[in-house]
Design a protein around this nucleic acid. Structure first.
Lengths: 348, 348
DNA sequence: TTGAAAGCGCTAACAC
DNA sequence: GTGTTAGCGCTTTCAA
């Protein structure tokens, strides 16, 4: 078996406690002794058993970020940001996938999310109720990403759904689009959307606002619904609409960049020019957008900030030793930038 | 604090041991008692403390996949595959990022990779020596991804570097390319490449073979070097070569799809038509390739198989209770498919 | 069929 | 300054 603290203590001729203190740089131990102990430990290739350490101390120094799919660019970039932020704070971040892609699997993975080997969780939990989240977190701090309940009981970080969407649609109107369509949202009236707090619905609110400002009314006919917010789905849905001849749009706001990529492909395959026939803008600002053809205009969310905020809040709660939902939950929304690239650039 | 097994035992009027057995469905406990215990546990919202459990049992039920960057599509898709494979086996997989993107950070993160909270590690460790890997793994099973030492002492899964690259270059010759260039590899003669076992060099070996078969000689002039295997770097390097007028190619094999995306952009911005002026093929088969414009021909690696093999081997070693490098390391190379899409389709 | 008790390797009072 | 000791919450003999 691996070498334990006892072994090191014996070899160094001290007690296990001294080894523990020395290794963690506790000033109680004399410099000289400490150095000797560390030396012996290194020579024996000792490393602490994190399991035992955290059983005793109640901390693991690990935070977990749980998202539906590791292989969606937005999540992947967010996770990279979380890892970097954690690194800067000297803690370890791990990522976990919640979904298997197949329906019905979510829950059983989620049950493992809240396992005790991490000190806290950043969770993209779309669709879970507050009660479920509380149950799953089992007393550990949680920071939600784009939490549905918005002003709910949990610490949360948000993408700038309403303002970002409003800016996107406004941009399309400003470059001269007359018929703006939305890809990836179910239509509902503004007041209903204001009650629902799904990400898609929150972005829809922004769209409603932009339409109103430009003295138009957003209707169901202006939306292209998707089952799933992914590239394939968007490709199929947009293709179908074009083929059905039900495609009067000269501007499209896609709820995510992934959706936009599928949309661009559908347009291209049907000989529709971007941006001249149809201008396209996405939402997220994933790096891939600068490599698509045409390059993708987008509401570039400050993904790195989002990650840092989430880690900061989580670490704070862990420090506080809080359990369960915090008394005063924090709600942070990060900024965005309207990134105009080829897909909506009509000035040239 | 959270509810412990003791609490449950007390509430159910049994001993902690019985709770432990009942919860894990040990047949020793009478059906009726077990049901009662489970009932009480649920009512109390009990969940086992995985830290204590694994201190005692020596297992955590968690495997870790450590890669350089979470936000590179190939890794992201591999990690998703690892998660799914682990899920199917009833264990938990977490992903960890090794690099922060900044140089010099790798090592200190790596030191945490081998922390004791997981039973084994799938590691994409490019650049580490065998000794370092052994030290880092600290007695836990490791499966390497595209291990440099190839026939080395570790269990490893490999992408089909040589054959895949040979197939890629052969494809370019077959569609009529006269001047095939390689993006993302440092030139070296075939025999030298055969000694180096970097992924790039192994792919280069396949290129050498394809050139020989077609009675050509691969030289340094046929390669475009990159510092980093990423999209931005490829974009810059290819752009520079075009601008310098040092770009005689009519076919390009990019060492990864990510490189190919940057290459496509550079070609497009310089008005070079793909596939007519230059045919392009990548390597990996990431999903993004079917959404680029033009869509990307590629050596589509069976990423899912790669993930499953890695998980299978790792779980086997964990079962065996092996420590350190295995006596008979397994080396598995997965298959590929030459996926001809628009970027190299000259038949239309 | 169940309970008592001995640790897994570590940390943190408290003694010396 | 350093050692002793009592657990952290669980699993697993062994005894009842």
């Amino acid at each position: 078996m691996a070498v334990t603290m006892r072994d090191v203590a014996k070899a160094a001729g001290v007690s296990p406690a001294s080894v523990s203190f020395a290794l963690r740089g506790d000033p109680r131990i004399k410099q000289e002794t400490a150095r000797h102990i560390i030396d012996v430990a290194n020579r024996m290739n000792y490393s602490v058993n994190i399991t035992a350490k955290s059983l005793r101390s109640g901390r693991t120094g690990v935070i977990e970020a749980a998202v539906f799919q590791l292989d969606r660019p937005f999540y992947a970039q967010l996770l990279a940001g979380v890892s970097n932020a954690a690194f800067d704070r000297g803690i370890q971040a791990v990522a976990q996938q919640i979904s298997t892609g197949k329906v019905g699997h979510e829950k059983s993975i989620l049950e493992k999310v809240a396992n005790k080997f991490c000190d806290g969780v950043i969770l993209s939990a779309g669709g879970l109720s507050d009660a479920e989240i509380i149950e799953l977190s089992r007393g550990k701090p949680v920071v939600l990403l784009d939490d549905q309940s918005y002003q709910g009981p949990f610490d949360s970080v948000f993408t700038p759904c309403e303002n970002g969407a409003e800016a996107a649609v406004t941009h399309l109107f400003e470059i001269g689009c007359e018929r703006v369509g939305l890809v990836g949202t179910d239509f509902m009236p503004a007041d209903q959307a204001r009650r629902s707090m799904h990400v898609g619905d929150r972005r829809l609110i922004g769209c409603h606002r932009a339409f109103e400002r430009h003295e138009r009314t957003l209707t169901k006919a202006d939306t292209i619904q998707l089952f799933d917010w992914d590239t394939d789905d968007a490709y199929r849905a947009v293709s179908r609409r074009i083929e059905e001849g039900d495609f009067p749009f000269d501007g499209l706001f896609c709820m995510t960049d992934a959706i936009a990529f599928g949309t661009l492909r559908a347009l291209r395959e049907h000989g529709i020019g971007v941006p001249d026939d149809v201008a396209v803008i996405g939402f997220d600002g994933v790096r891939e957008g600068s490599y698509s053809a045409p390059t993708l205009s987008t509401i570039a969310v400050d993904i790195d900030k989002l990650a840092r905020e989430a880690v900061d809040i989580l670490c704070e709660r862990i420090e506080e030793g809080r359990y369960g939902a915090p008394a005063m939950p924090k709600h942070v929304t990060v900024g965005y930038e309207v990134l105009v690239r080829e897909s909506s650039n009509r000035t040239r």
